[in-house]
Amino acid sequence: MQAPGGTTARGLFHAQGRPPGPESESARKETLMTTKTEVTTDELDALRSEINGLDDELIRIWQRRAAVSKRIGEIRMANGGTRLVLDRERAILEKYRTALGEDGVQIAMLVLRAGRGPL
């Protein structure tokens, strides 16, 4: 049986301090899966924790960006300008498209709407 990384299951057991023995193939598979699951569970918990932190940061940045954008709109309108500047919005859409692909356009539309409101 081939284990991840190209080593044989028997070699992996031996490397873990277990001498190669007559254990059944299913027992070796179960042990390998259990070991992999334990490692994966620890990693999964760490990654989920990181995602939670990133989500908190995204929300904070989203809210700050919306507030700054609204303030820019207020200043622009108070000085006789238009509610929005289409060239600026097009540039933002293109920036997101370039960085994130077509999904970036959808994200940019939501970001823009959060700052200026719906069209």
Rank of each mutant, 00 (worst) to 15 (best):
M1V: 15
R97S: 11
G5D: 09
T82R: 11
Q2W: 04
P118N: 07
V111R: 01
A91T: 10
I61V: 14
G80K: 07
G53F: 04
A99D: 06
P4R: 15
I107A: 11
T82K: 12
R60K: 08
R116K: 07
R28S: 06
A3Q: 11
S69Q: 09
I51V: 15
A67K: 09
A114Y: 00
T7S: 08
A67C: 05
G11D: 13
I75Q: 13
L58M: 11
M1D: 11
S24M: 07
K36Y: 03
L12I: 08
D55M: 15
I61Y: 09
M77A: 10
E50Y: 13
T82V: 02
D103A: 03
L112T: 01
I107D: 00
G6Q: 06
G80I: 08
G117E: 05
M109D: 12
E30V: 08
A67H: 12
L112N: 00
I92L: 06
Q16V: 09
P22H: 10
M33E: 13
I75V: 15
G80Q: 09
G115R: 05
H14S: 06
R113E: 12
A9E: 07
P4S: 14
P20F: 02
L32E: 06
R28M: 15
A99Q: 06
E25A: 14
R97L: 04
A3E: 13
G5S: 14
